[in-house]
Design a protein around this nucleic acid. Structure first.
Length: 158
DNA sequence: GCCAACGTTGGC
DNA sequence: GCCAACGTTGGC
């Protein structure tokens, strides 16, 4: 038997809906996609080291009006190498990444729930208890980020 | 479209 | 190791 897993953790991923929307995730095979193309080390570390199968993820639409959390997804596969970094034809190609020692990693995400009503960024900014949420920090642009258990509870109860 | 904030790169 | 220059993110 594997050791008892630690408590489920919570995350938030950003996507520009013009590139890949929550609707696109719902339409994907198995409602699942690999979260490729992340090229930020902090976000990479989160995916490679911290996101575990069964963790839940807010799916956030950025650079759109209004920016908002639109759905919930689940981690269904833990970190594996991001193949797009090794493909010269891919826009996310990174010549410094090697197959034998990948620089970039990704997880699989599966759509779980569409929010009946998107929760907008402006709305989140007014919610007590979310003052320290990474998403709401000035200048925050991390595309894969942690959400505390308390923050998750507050938001899902809105 | 603007631009502030941020991460990365590269010269020194 | 510093830091200016650059490219990107993402709200507005």
């Amino acid at each position: 038997m594997p050791a008892a897993r630690s408590a489920r953790r919570y995350w938030l991923v950003k996507s520009e809906p013009d590139s890949f929307s929550f609707h696109d995730l719902l339409a994907a095979k198995g409602r699942t996609t690999c979260w490729d193309g992340v090229r930020n080390y902090q976000a990479r570390n989160t995916m490679r080291d911290d996101m575990k199968k069964g963790d839940l993820v807010f799916f956030y639409h950025s650079s759109t009006d209004p920016a908002a959390i639109v759905g919930i997804a689940e981690v269904t596969r833990e970190a594996y190498p991001d193949h797009t970094a090794l493909d010269p034809a891919d826009s996310h190609f990174d010549p410094k990444s090697k197959a034998e020692s990948p620089t970039w990693w990704m997880v699989d995400l599966k759509a779980v729930t569409t929010l009946a009503q998107p929760i907008t960024l402006a709305q989140l900014r007014g919610v007590k208890g979310l003052e320290k949420m990474v998403l709401l920090q000035k200048g925050s642009r991390l595309s894969v980020q942690p959400v505390s258990g308390k923050e998750w509870e507050i938001i899902t109860l809105l």
